[in-house]
Simulated scan of single mutants.
Amino acid sequence: TEKIKAEGVEDIVLSLDRLGLRDQLCSLSRMRALALKNTFRPFGYPAISFITNGSVDTQAAHAVAMICKYSSIVVLDTAEPYAFLPMLTAAMNIFSDPQKPVQVEPKVYAIGEPDANSPVMFTTNFSLTYYTVESDVEASRVPSYILVVDTEGTSVLTAYSGDKLNEKTVADAMAKHNVEKLVKHRKLIIPGYVAVMSGKLEEATNWEIMVGPRECSMLSKYLHEVWK
């Protein structure tokens, strides 16, 4: 690469030809380590990998392995859309900011086909928290509304401890998303771990606050036996 660069070529991509998957992964890892440690800077260019053998599923699996081990460009011998989904997922996870939690959009989500008599509950916009709640509500087969409050992608307890989840943030979220227009009743189910905020939340919203279970796994039983 140094000789090529000396000739005035700046756009350089490295390719490892005629190597098996194992050898390519080992070589790519070694090349990246040598470049980052300034041991051999000529390896500090993007790498391209060609995957043309095997079934579509095999190519997709090999491509994900290459993406995880420093191949900047991966070329496959397929155009099947489903083969690119795992590659895009891997790339998005690798290049996401670990200090910025994965979030869902703060809004009201309708689970099933809720009506004016369906339960309303809230959770935070931390994706893992939301999808856990959503999954258990779906499993209960009780059509419901889930209000997702913007807590900057933090979980319920973390948000409450950092004062990102309080009676004001919940009341503001309810007003912003017109929750009162969705249902006839005025009952709000809150996470069991923040039961302590029920009094102030009731004053801030003028809604009846129902303390839900601490664990999502108990949501189904709660919705069938406690919610009325």
Rank of each mutant, 00 (worst) to 15 (best):
P213Q: 07
A35G: 10
I190C: 07
D163Q: 13
T151D: 12
G112A: 03
L165R: 12
R18C: 03
E152G: 14
P46M: 02
L219E: 01
M66W: 11
L147D: 07
V120N: 07
I190D: 03
S71C: 14
K100P: 02
S118E: 09
V156E: 06
A61T: 12
I67S: 07
G153S: 11
N178T: 04
A83I: 00
S155T: 15
P101K: 01
V137C: 13
T154Y: 15
S96E: 08
F84K: 04
A173L: 09
H224T: 03
E10S: 13
R18N: 13
Y130F: 15
Y160F: 14
P101A: 05
V108Q: 03
K5T: 06
G54S: 12
T151F: 08
G192V: 01
R18I: 02
E215S: 07
E225F: 00
D172W: 00
M197D: 01
S144D: 11
Q103R: 15
T89V: 12
V142G: 04
M92G: 02
P106K: 11
A110D: 11
K69L: 11
V142K: 10
L21F: 00
Q99N: 13
V137F: 06
I48S: 14
G8H: 03
A61S: 14
I94K: 10
N117E: 12
K184P: 15
P119K: 08
F50K: 05
V74N: 10
P191E: 06
S49I: 01
A60S: 15
P119S: 02
R32K: 15
D23C: 03
E113A: 15
D17N: 13
D97R: 05
E202P: 11
K168D: 08
A63G: 05
P42S: 10
K164A: 04
I73C: 13
I4L: 15
F84M: 10
Y82P: 00
A6D: 09
E152D: 14
K100M: 03
E7V: 00
V196S: 14
L85M: 12
S198H: 01
P46C: 03
T124E: 04
I73L: 14
E7T: 05
S96Y: 01
K184N: 15
V56D: 15
F95C: 10
S155M: 10
V75Q: 14
I73S: 09
E202A: 13
K228D: 04
S217E: 01
L219I: 04
S71Q: 10
K37I: 00
K164G: 13
Y130R: 04
G20E: 00
L14I: 14
G20C: 05
V108S: 06
I146N: 12
G153Q: 08
V149G: 05
G20K: 08
R186N: 12
T124D: 06
V9L: 10
H224L: 08
E215Q: 07
A159N: 10
I73K: 07
F40W: 13
Y222M: 11
G44C: 06
S15G: 06
S140H: 03
L28C: 05
G199M: 01
K176T: 09
P119V: 03
P114Q: 11
A204L: 08
K184E: 15
Y82W: 12
V194H: 08
P81Y: 02
D172I: 00
S127N: 05
D23Q: 14
P191H: 05
V104H: 08
E7R: 13
A65E: 14
L147A: 09
D23R: 11
H185E: 02
S220Q: 11
V137R: 01
T154S: 14
I12C: 08
F126N: 11
I209D: 04
